[in-house]
């Protein structure tokens, strides 16, 4: 049980540690604080988006111990001590991840709202399965709804990144 601190008004908060993008972050949260909100409002990691907030759209996707989850259906206290990767943790040493490069080059981003979640789902897929088939890519991002692109460029971008190229094939 995380340490609980009750303020003078009787509101109980929990001292939790979230290992976010490689850094241990200690935050004081109420029991009912949703992880998406804590990431965005307490840790300023606003790359994690709020869409449906009910686990349908995937825009709040983060990696929890390397696995994609919808952070909107998770209490922050439940993530105490866990490893979290948000979109801010995907680029390393100032360099975009191959998936991000590829998505830019394939024009796989339109409004961009689904993109952070989409990148994280793709990242988890390529970590587990570096050379996926197209159906495997489609399945991996099935929990990330995009209302702009029709998915074609996104799927092409992820496949290209898995093949070590980030530029689009000639059309």
């Amino acid at each position: 049980m995380p340490q609980a601190i009750t303020d003078k008004d009787g509101v109980k908060r929990y001292l939790i540690t979230l290992n976010v993008n490689g850094d241990a972050k200690t935050v004081l949260v109420k029991g009912n604080a949703i992880l998406t909100n804590v990431l965005r409002d307490e840790l300023d990691l606003t790359g994690t988006k709020k869409g449906c907030e009910l686990g349908d759209c995937g825009s709040c996707t983060i990696l929890l111990d390397g696995k994609p989850v919808d952070s909107c259906l998770m209490l922050a206290v439940e993530a105490d001590g866990r490893e979290i990767t948000t979109i801010e943790g995907v680029a390393a040493n100032g360099r975009l991840d191959a998936i991000q490069e590829s998505m830019i080059n394939h024009a796989a981003v339109q409004c961009g709202y689904c993109t952070p979640g989409m990148v994280l789902s793709a990242k988890a897929l390529l970590t587990r399965n570096p050379h996926p088939t197209e159906p495997e890519v489609r399945e991996a991002i099935a929990g990330n709804l995009c209302r702009c692109t029709g998915y074609v460029h996104i799927v092409e971008a992820v496949l290209a990144a898995s093949q070590g190229r980030t530029a689009p094939a000639d059309h």
Partner: peptide
């Protein structure tokens, strides 16, 4: 049964 995210949770 559901998306990858939900299946992880």
């Amino acid at each position: 049964m559901a998306s990858n995210q939900i299946c992880n949770m």
